[in-house]
């Protein structure tokens, strides 16, 4: 991690979030959200998680952007009217939630801490044995498709079911 890069990303992410809310055109909002996802992918890459960064860049930025764009095209490019009363309820709620997150973040282990709960226990076994067990240098792949393949089977079933259900629901709405 490079703290200058992290600081730059923090500034850019905050700017993207504010612009996405403030801007009047829905298409512009979609574009800014795609940029937001791409910056988050950079953040993941900086943390040393290229696998997650990959999925975030392609799924979060490219595909969700296209989906939202289609939604905007289907419903029209007019922003919803602002509700002042909703803002009075949502504002304090968001503030309380932000404080809770900040308080909780104090207890998080440092990035790259060798004594972090995620870095001790069974994880060390995976890192040491994945090459001998399955000839796979990328430990992430070995965990996903071999050691924890039951989880991947469940995830894939969820994706399969969700896609099937979404396709069927969307189909019935066309007359």
């Amino acid at each position: 991690m490079i703290w200058q890069l992290d600081l730059l990303l923090l500034v850019l992410l905050t700017a993207c979030a504010v612009i996405a809310v403030v801007v009047r055109s829905m298409i512009a909002t979609v574009a800014v959200l795609a940029a937001f996802s791409l910056l988050v992918a950079l953040l993941f890459a900086g943390m040393g998680a290229p696998d997650v960064a990959f999925v975030e860049a392609v799924l979060g930025s490219a595909f969700v952007g296209v989906l939202l764009l289609i939604a905007v095209l289907a419903t029209g490019d007019r922003p919803a009217g602002r509700d002042r009363r909703a803002a009075w309820i949502a504002g304090p709620l968001v503030a309380v939630f932000a404080v809770l997150l900040l308080v909780a973040s104090v207890d998080l282990p440092d990035r790259g801490d060798p004594n972090a709960p995620a870095a001790v226990g069974v994880a060390t076994q995976y890192v040491e044995r994945s090459l001998a067990d399955s000839e796979t240098p990328n430990v992430v792949t070995a965990i996903l498709a071999d050691y924890r393949s039951m989880d991947t089977l469940g995830e894939t079933l969820v994706v399969f079911t969700a896609a099937l259900a979404a396709a069927l629901i969307l189909r019935r709405r066309t007359p």
Partner: peptide, 15 residues
Amino acid sequence: FGGILSIFDRLASQV
């Protein structure tokens, strides 16, 4: 691949 493409196709056919 199939899941994402089928969702896209269904959504796009509504536009």
